[in-house]
């Protein structure tokens, strides 16, 4: 068994997660993950002039899943949709001073959720 050792930043975001919650009138929602795998993230964005003006999340998952969710809200807020789409799992992990290798799948979740939320917004926007 591998016991992950988290960075101080991961523990900080796990202990004091930023932007937890839902946005009732969200412009885009991204729901990714699967409870069977132990990680589910729901991400809500508000968009104004192609800029993410508000972002909130709800996550079911391990410490890394919660920390990466929290971190992506910080990374994405204020970014244009094009900038936000480029955020990768590596960016999230780097911003948290790294993740244990076994946890790298958790950080996929946050970047995926953001992309899903943006797709959701774009689909609605075009319609």
């Amino acid at each position: 068994m591998v016991t992950p050792l988290y960075s101080d930043k991961v523990m900080d975001h796990f202990t004091n997660p930023r932007n937890v919650g839902e946005i009732a009138d969200a412009d885009g929602i991204g729901k990714v993950g699967n409870p069977q795998c132990g990680d589910v993230m729901w991400l809500y964005i508000k968009v104004d002039n192609d800029v993410i003006t508000d972002i909130k999340f709800k996550t079911f998952g391990c410490g890394a899943a919660i920390a990466t969710s929290s971190m992506i809200t910080e990374l994405a807020r204020g970014k244009t949709l094009e900038e936000a789409k480029k955020l990768s799992r590596g960016d999230v992990a780097d911003a948290l001073d790294g993740l244990p290798p076994v946890k790298m799948h958790c950080s996929n979740l946050a970047a995926d959720a953001l992309r899903e939320a943006i797709s959701d917004y774009e689909a609605k926007h075009k319609a």
Partner: peptide
């Protein structure tokens, strides 16, 4: 539980609708 998307109203195991992505 405050951080979790699931609750008594949104039971665990609900897939979150059509936006759900199976990893």
């Amino acid at each position: 539980r405050e951080i979790s998307p699931f609750s008594g109203h949104t039971p665990l195991g609900s897939d979150g609708g059509d936006a759900s992505v199976q990893r």
